[in-house]
Design a protein around this nucleic acid. Structure first.
Lengths: 116, 116
DNA sequence: TCCTTATATTGATGTCTGTCGATACAAGAA
DNA sequence: TTCTTGTATCGACAGACATCAATATAAGGA
């Protein structure tokens, strides 16, 4: 239920068939809920969208704080949640930390929701 | 940010293209986050899965409380959130309230997440 | 070495959320 | 009408969350 015990979304989505295809287990429901919770915040959705739209599809913290209108610690906090959940990767170059989308992560979640 | 001011998921997903296709607006991010938040709970994911798996793809509160292991007020609370978010419909017949999936609601959310 | 810059972490605060027990409401049966 | 049953709402409580200011860490430059 908390955002702290997080299985990477890749592992969460590898396990099962779509929600409405067969009854989900309690454990898988807990894991999927955690992955969705990591996504279910306006700032984090915008971060994902901004990273995808940025040059080379990567962005550093300094690219995000001003357009988000949030403090740097808050942005770092959201980025950590997205990395821990497996939606973003972090790579440090010099003093900068660059964040990129994990290919297929969002698609894995989408696959579990779809009904067709 | 709260679960209380909720736009039906149908309206949320009608508005925009996938998250990673173009930068999402602040308002659309807020709406999508609310729709995802309604989904991001183990009990509610299991409810959706159970309703889909039930006979005639509908279920009443009494069908859900025991398998969920939650009290009746708690289940009613979760159902209200899912109805308000536009994932379920409620129809009352006699003393029973029957809940059904809203066709296409989950697919609308999935469409916004997908990157391909 | 010291300074500067970019990022992460810590601690605190107000708000939100999931759950329950108690109660209210609704509808059919006696 | 009264009783019973299924569901909804209310009030309370503990835990979780988003945010910030302050501080710590890391890495390059002078």
């Amino acid at each position: 239920m908390s955002l702290m015990e997080l299985l990477p979304v890749r592992d969460v989505t590898a396990c099962c068939s779509p929600l409405t295809r067969e009854a989900i287990t309690e454990e898988n429901a807990t894991n999927l809920a955690s992955s969705l919770k990591a996504l279910a915040d306006p700032a984090r959705l915008r971060i994902i969208s901004m990273v995808a739209a940025h040059i080379d599809a990567e962005a550093c913290v300094c690219d995000l704080t001003e357009p988000l209108g949030l403090g740097q610690p808050t942005v770092s906090h959201h980025l950590k949640i997205l990395v821990d959940a497996g939606y973003l990767t972090r790579s440090k170059r010099g003093t900068w930390a660059y964040y990129k989308l994990v290919p297929g992560a969002l698609d894995g979640v989408a696959r579990l929701l779809v009904t067709v």
